[in-house]
């Protein structure tokens, strides 16, 4: 019973942006090229130690990708202390979806801490999100990640955990 603090976080974003892959990279340090769409929600847990020394157990709710929030996913979001918003750099429209989802989630959860991830950075050559767009997004709480190589994944979850702990 060393980490007696647990926090619920959710992963939100369009279909196939890499939510499940990011969780898998973070929790199991593994990756697969296969795409198995999430049905409903998948829950994983991971204990993290923050640089300040405190420990927290993250209860990660990986919610199935949607363009808009369904009633069920709204229920899944309840009680989350923070969320990870994911977009796929190779498909600019997933960024639009992410921003629309954010606008729905924020009032629902009373503007909780969040981090944005522009994922699939290993495919940078195929990116549709332009360099200038990236510059703006990086200033607004987004960062670059690749579930495939692991770049930026753990750091993002840790950053979110730090923001959530009072």
């Amino acid at each position: 019973m060393n980490a007696s603090i647990s926090k619920k976080i959710c992963l939100i974003g369009d279909f196939a942006v890499g939510k499940t892959s990011l969780v898998r990279r973070f929790v199991d340090e593994a990756f697969s090229d296969d795409y198995l769409t999430t049905v409903g929600v998948k829950i994983s847990t991971k204990r993290v130690r923050l640089p300040k020394g405190s420990e927290v157990k993250l209860i990660v709710w990986d919610i199935a990708g949607h363009e808009r929030l369904s009633t069920v996913s709204k229920t899944y979001l309840q009680g989350a202390s923070g969320y990870v918003l994911v977009a796929d750099g190779t498909r600019a429209n997933t960024l639009q979806t992410a921003l629309a989802l954010k606008a729905q989630v924020d009032p629902l959860l009373h503007e909780p801490p969040w981090v944005g991830l522009l994922n699939k950075y290993d495919l940078e050559a195929e990116w549709e999100v332009t360099a200038t767009q990236q510059q703006t997004l990086l200033k607004q709480g987004w960062s670059l990640s690749s579930a495939k190589t692991g770049t930026g994944v753990e750091a993002a979850f840790l950053r979110l955990a730090e923001m959530m702990l009072p």
């Binding site: 619920k8 409903g40 829950i43 847990t45 157990k57 209860i59 709710w61």
Partner: peptide, 15 residues
């Protein structure tokens, strides 16, 4: 993993 079980039960219930 009782934390995961607890979350999953809630998710199933909501679903």
């Amino acid at each position: 993993d009782s934390d995961a079980v607890s979350a999953m039960l809630t998710a199933i219930e909501s679903f």
